[in-house]
Design a binder for these strands. Structure first.
Lengths: 147, 147
DNA sequence: CCCGTTTCGACCACTTCCGACCACTCCATA
DNA sequence: TATGGAGTGGTCGGAAGTGGTCGAAACGGG
């Protein structure tokens, strides 16, 4: 199974178009075709799932027996997602509704996350990478991971 | 399993290219080929993993059951990494995004760290080597190590 | 129902970037 | 001094990214 890896810069223009970086687009189109499902789990990012992958994720979401509040919130968000196609330049046209709900526009980073792509504001990525080192407790957690 | 050992000077030129020191490059290419994954765990350094090694590390990172905050931060950082190839001179082209986000440029040190290479600013390496002696507590920790 | 406004997909043109290639210097060794 | 490996710097063309126009379709109000 093809894994998405790597973070690349991109921009969302005034019309809401995002050009997926070539490296990620290759991985996407070779493995799954050019249909994707775009949605948001969290306010700071958009997620782009290849359609076949999304169908599995959706299955898993809906099959959960107990409708815990967190799950309900998630499903409500997902319902505002969109099934989209890449145009011939590999661009996604993100509908106005999604753009409004998720505050991503202008300079963004598109990053591979194993089974989907994430679109986040570049400023957010920068602040995460530049964040000062982890606390002692956090370092403790990572001990034994053999990184 | 090939272990990386040794610290060597290198420079990152204006285009973001780093020539891996020959000694380390031999160890890398002989053992694993010329595909690498470059990412940042901490703001002051880049890490270069041979692809086969990275796949193991990634597995270990993702398989941790409890998503502790420190782990989440780490994974988010890793998502901005890049899959790269060495050019025919053994140089890595570090993408602008990573260069911006991790403050490494100009004079650096490339050092072997068992299973990966680290790229840090040379000034940082220098200050560590010149650092004043350890505190009493720190010396205490080291007792019995037979160094 | 009709028309003005908005939205979106297709198409086109320009700019930027980066990866491949080449040229040169600096040492160490013979 | 000749030679080869290592490190450094630059160029150049094709690919990738960016920005715009135009027309069809969708929508809402009168």
């Amino acid at each position: 199974m093809q894994r998405f890896r790597g973070g690349f810069p991109a921009t969302i223009d005034a019309k809401g178009r995002v050009k997926l970086p070539a490296r990620l687009r290759e991985q996407l189109e070779d493995g799954y075709g050019h249909e994707v499902f775009v949605c948001s789990f969290f306010p700071h990012e958009l997620r782009v799932y290849p359609l076949p992958v999304w169908e599995l994720v959706e299955e898993r979401l809906l099959s959960k027996p107990a409708m815990k509040p967190a799950l309900l919130k998630l499903i409500e968000r997902v319902n505002y997602g969109q099934l989209l196609e890449l145009d011939d330049h590999g661009r996604l046209m993100v509908p106005a509704l999604l753009r409004e709900m998720v505050a991503v526009e202008g300079e963004v980073v598109v990053s591979g996350r194993i089974n989907h792509l994430a679109i986040t504001k570049r400023s957010r990525a920068a602040s995460i990478l530049q964040e000062e080192s982890l606390s002692d407790e956090e370092l403790e957690e990572l001990a034994g991971l053999e990184l």
